[in-house]
Amino acid sequence: MALPFRVGTDDDDAALIDAQEAMQDGRLVERVVRGDAEAYGELVSRHMQRAFSVAYRVLEHREDAEDVVQNSFVRALEKIDRLDRSRPFRPWLLRIVVNQALNFRRGRGIRTTSPLPETAAATGSLPDRQMENSDLRRRLNDALGMLPEKQRTIVQLADLEGLRSGEIGRIMGLADGTVRWHLHEARKSLRSVLAPIREDI
C-alpha cells in the first residue's frame, strides 16, 4: 500500500508506523481467530521481543520472563475472541504480559539473577568512576523498588521501554492523564532519592 507523503514530527512518524503495524496485526489476528497456526507464529515473532523486554523489566529474571512470555501468548490466544478488533493488538497483549508478570512476581517474592555489582565497592579495585556508577545503580534500584507497583511499572514502560502514555494507559487500564500524573509523581520520588548524588536531575 502506498503511503501518503507527509511532513511531520518524530511523534507523527511513530504514530504512522504504529498504525501500519496495528493494521498488519489486525489481519493476523483475523487469521488466528480462524485457527491459522502460521499467522499465530507470525504474531508471536512480531511481539516476542517486546513482550520479553516488558516482562523482564518487572521480573529482572530471564527464565521467569521467558515463561511469562510463553504463558501470555497462550493466554492471549485463549482470549482472542474478546479482543476488540477496532483496537491495536500490542497494548492488549502487553496488558496480559504485565498482569502475568506482576502475578508471577507477587507469587515468587523478589528474586533477581542480575545483582548489582557489589564486588567493586568491596575490593576497591575499580576506578572511582565505576564505583560511582555502582553506587548510583544501587540507589536507583532501591529508589525504583520503593515506588508503588503501579508507578514503578509506568516508569519502566515509559522511560525504559519508551512507550507513550496513551499506550501505557491501554496496557494498565488507566486514562492517559492518570498515566502522566503517575509518571510525574514517580519521577519526583526518584529525584528526591537521587538528587543528593546527581545535581542534573
Binding site: 521481543q49 520479553f52 523486554s53 523482564y56 523489566r57 529482572e60 530471564r62 520472563a65 521467558e66 542480575s114 556508577n133 548510583l136 545503580r137 536507583l140 534500584n141 525504583l144 516508569v155 519502566q156 522511560d159 525504559l160 519521577r187 526518584l190 529525584r191 537521587l194 546527581r198 542534573d200 536531575i201
Partner: peptide, 21 residues
C-alpha cells in the same frame, strides 16, 4: 529534568538480556 532522569534510568537500569534468549 525528565530527560535527564530518563537517560539516567536507561544508563543504569539492568537491560533485558535480549542476546541471552
Amino acid at each position: 529534568e525528565d530527560t535527564a532522569m530518563r537517560e539516567l534510568l536507561r544508563a543504569h537500569a539492568p537491560e533485558p538480556p535480549l542476546l541471552g534468549v
